[in-house]
Design a protein around this nucleic acid. Structure first.
Length: 472
RNA sequence: GGCGACGUGGCCAAGUGGUAAGGCGAGGGUCUGCAAAACCCUUAUUCGCCGGUUCGAAUCCGGCCGUCGCCUCCA
């Protein structure tokens, strides 16, 4: 098992990764709040986490991952109230579209998707422990976490709450608390809001406690990696640490990985700017899901990524280079090439690829290795493929694609319309007719067929060994 | 005000001390009946600016300029 290094937000440094249990990684990733369709910024984070998960397995670890679904929270309650339905009815379609979006981008299903509404009992139990230990207090019908009681509060974000400029949101909190820094664990019920019984009367859980309770249930008091977007670093993850470590008396997670945000046309996504794209928005424009995954995965996760349609098109052209090589490889006969040097190129690629991933998930460098290999294989195709070359190249690419899930176009639902409705057999027949025409030097007829195929989205390539075709 | 990140060729983007990966674009070439497609080659003596450390710096240190993010809704 190769040593893998990650940049740990807790301590802000690159660290060699070592799981608590040998060969088994327990991973918690903050999931969506299911009040709307998720946007491509969310998707960037989920793709990063997917690549993390796949990378861990690539290096031989077994992964147990939990991703929560926040299905009760202020925005959900407000929207459900507005729609005059209960929150479960309101969130159901958003949960569904969330899974659809992930599937469309080939994000793997994880082991657990716990929902907040199904774990209120665990949250109450944790709040009771915090109250008993003096880390929490009741005020009105609510319960708050007492930050003054937590001596190492702020260790993740480095934020010193005494230095924080007091924003309006702090002042305007509706629930009474002893100290403006404190955050809510349990909110007393309000008229018209969903509520659960508790030792403190009816109410609902605060946002932060959800993750603390659910990660403990599915991964244990201390687990290996906790991920999320940078915006969650403070206050959400800071508060999770405060709650969990105060309640459990042991560290929450050993490694904290945060992915940077996606901007659109250089600006933060926001509804008012109209640049808040969902996956559906992009797919509706006919943009391929595969290009989207490639683009979102192609920049290092700790680097801000600026999304533009130009870059998405570029991503598609880059993928085409890979597809073209595979197409040529599939149509080129193996004969007398240098087997040893092809094998060397393949193992160079495999080593460079693994090394890049092991270096804090450097997907940009890993893709660089892919293209260097593509170049090398193109050279073999031009100068002679040794016996076994196709299988060797295929194996190397397949292994890399276990992590990237983007290299093999065949794994992506192609557009069935491509080819203008022509079947493979019909295209074969047309290409053959064209070859016959060319052989008899009837170029006008040959060009007519070529135009016909072109209009149907089929590209014909003439090679020294005859013509071949592919769908554009 | 506090905390943090970033600034590499036309565009994007790797690279944390040893002499600039990769992709897109552009230019040239090969192949071709002509094309197309594809492939190949070329494309940064230089890494925001100024100093410093070092035999050696895009990489370390200091200063400056610029961009961005977080500071209790937010992936």
């Amino acid at each position: 098992m190769k040593p893998v290094k990650f940049f740990n937000s807790l301590g802000r440094r690159l660290q060699e990764f070592e799981p608590l249990e040998p060969a088994h990684v327990r991973l918690y990733t903050c999931g969506p709040t299911v009040y709307d369709r998720i946007h491509i910024g969310n998707l960037r984070t989920f793709i990063f986490e997917d690549i993390l998960r796949r990378t861990l397995r690539f290096f031989g670890y077994r992964v147990t991952q939990a991703m929560n679904l926040t299905d009760v929270e202020d925005k959900i309650i407000a929207a459900a109230l507005e729609a005059e339905v209960d929150i479960d009815t309101f969130t159901a379609p958003h949960v569904e579209s969330f899974f659809e979006d992930l599937a469309a981008l080939r994000v793997e299903r994880v082991e657990h998707y716990p929902r907040a509404t199904e774990h209120v009992a665990e949250m109450i139990a944790m709040i009771e422990r915090l109250l008993a230990a003096g880390y929490a207090y009741r005020a009105d019908d609510s319960v708050f976490f007492r930050i003054a009681a937590d001596h190492d509060y702020g260790k993740l974000s480095g934020i010193d709450l005494d230095q924080v400029r007091r924003g309006q949101r702090v002042q305007s909190d509706e629930y009474g608390k002893q100290d403006a820094r404190d955050f809510v664990l349990w909110k007393g019920a309000k008229e018209g809001e969903p509520e659960w019984p508790s030792p403190w009367g009816p109410g609902r859980p605060g946002w932060h406690i959800e993750c603390s309770a659910m990660s403990r249930k599915y991964l244990g008091k201390t687990f290996d990696i906790h991920c999320g977007g940078v915006d969650n670093l403070f206050p959400h993850h800071e508060n999770e640490i405060a709650q969990s470590e105060s309640a459990n008396c042991c560290p929450l997670a050993r490694y904290w990985l945060h992915s940077e945000h996606l901007t659109v046309d250089g600006e933060k996504m926001s509804k008012s700017l109209g640049n808040c794209y969902t996956l559906g928005d992009l797919l509706d424009r006919g943009l391929p899901a595969r290009s989207i995954r490639y683009l979102l995965a192609s920049v290092h996760y700790r680097q801000q990524l600026d999304f533009t349609f130009d870059k998405l098109a570029e991503a598609g052209r880059a993928l085409k280079r890979i597809d073209d090589m595979r197409f040529r490889l599939a149509h080129e006969a193996e004969k007398d090439g240098d087997s040893a040097s092809l094998d060397l190129a393949a193992s160079d690629f495999e080593n460079a690829f693994a090394e890049a991933l092991a270096d804090d998930l450097n997907t940009a460098a890993a893709l660089g290795a892919v293209f260097t290999f593509v170049h090398a294989v193109n050279g073999f195709i031009d100068h002679g493929l040794p016996p076994g070359a196709r299988a060797r190249v295929q194996a190397a690419l397949d292994r890399a694609d276990q992590v990237l899930a983007v290299l093999d176009v065949g794994e992506w639902a192609g557009s069935p319309e491509a080819g203008g409705g022509l079947s493979d057999a019909e295209i074969d027949a047309l290409v053959e007719a064209r070859s016959d025409a060319r052989a008899s030097r009837n170029f006008a007829a040959a060009d007519r067929i070529r135009d016909q195929l072109s209009e149907a989205g089929v590209v014909v390539e003439d090679t020294p060994h005859g013509s071949r075709w592919k769908r554009a």
